[in-house]
């Protein structure tokens, strides 16, 4: 049986999509169990001069404890299981966009205690601040696209 079919004029590999969905599910579960989905917990981690809560440093450390050896092993393979090649970011040099983008992101993260993953994972809470954040985040991404990417 050919497991490649076409959805929305796109060739898709259904077997791979099951794994991608599972990956999303585990990611969302991890954000929830770790407490990263809770902006108050994130602010507690970022508030190093207040009642500092180091929990989220452990989230990052234990995440890296899996990805550092995992990526090292996987990237030695010729190709991933269900794709012809790896799709990795091409840029290698440090530029002003990288640094200014990270500064802007850091300001937003500190203001709300939300970054993209936890914000999206939290939308089913229907919390008005989370929903406003997500709507504005999508608008910010589109703004970047129309201002800086859409022109050739």
């Amino acid at each position: 049986m050919d497991d490649t079919s076409s959805v929305l004029h796109e060739k898709v590999n259904t077997k791979a999509l099951v794994w991608v969905f599972l990956s999303g599910l585990l990611f969302g579960l991890g954000l929830t169990i770790s407490g990263m989905i809770n902006p108050a917990k994130v602010i507690g981690f970022l508030d190093i001069t207040g009642n500092w809560d180091p929990s989220l440093a452990l989230v990052m450390a234990s995440g890296l404890a899996v990805t550092v050896p995992g990526f090292h092993f996987i990237l030695k393979q010729k190709r991933p299981l269900f794709e012809a090649r790896f799709f990795l970011p091409g840029k290698a040099d440090i530029d002003l966009q990288l640094v200014s983008g990270a500064v802007l992101f850091g300001i937003g993260w500190g203001l709300a205690g939300l970054c993209p993953g936890p914000a999206l994972a939290g939308i089913t809470s229907l919390d008005s601040s989370v929903l406003s954040f997500v709507a504005a985040m999508l608008a910010g991404m589109l703004l970047h696209y129309f201002l800086l990417e859409s022109r050739d």
């Binding site: 983008g101 203001l111 709300a112 997500v134 608008a139 703004l143």
Partner: peptide
């Protein structure tokens, strides 16, 4: 905050 995160993560 959302605007800054959306624009900043793309930049």
């Amino acid at each position: 905050a959302g605007l800054a995160v959306g624009f900043g993560t793309r930049l």
